[in-house]
Amino acid sequence: MKAGVKSSGKRWKRSTDKILMWQVLLFMAGVLAFAVGIYRDEVRTVLMKAIYICLECIGIG
């Protein structure tokens, strides 16, 4: 019984560690990609599209 509880606890810790690892990894990748996007001036493309009426979006052309 005790062995079972111990192994379930280990399994839980492993799963927690795995999720934490993914959270840190994805967050860091996000910060990096976001910074690269700003450096490549992609923001200007977004802004240029957003400040004019998007005719496709509203169903004109």
Partner: peptide
Amino acid sequence: ISFYLLGFFLL
């Protein structure tokens, strides 16, 4: 490829 949007979605 859009790193800006990729980063946004990841965050």
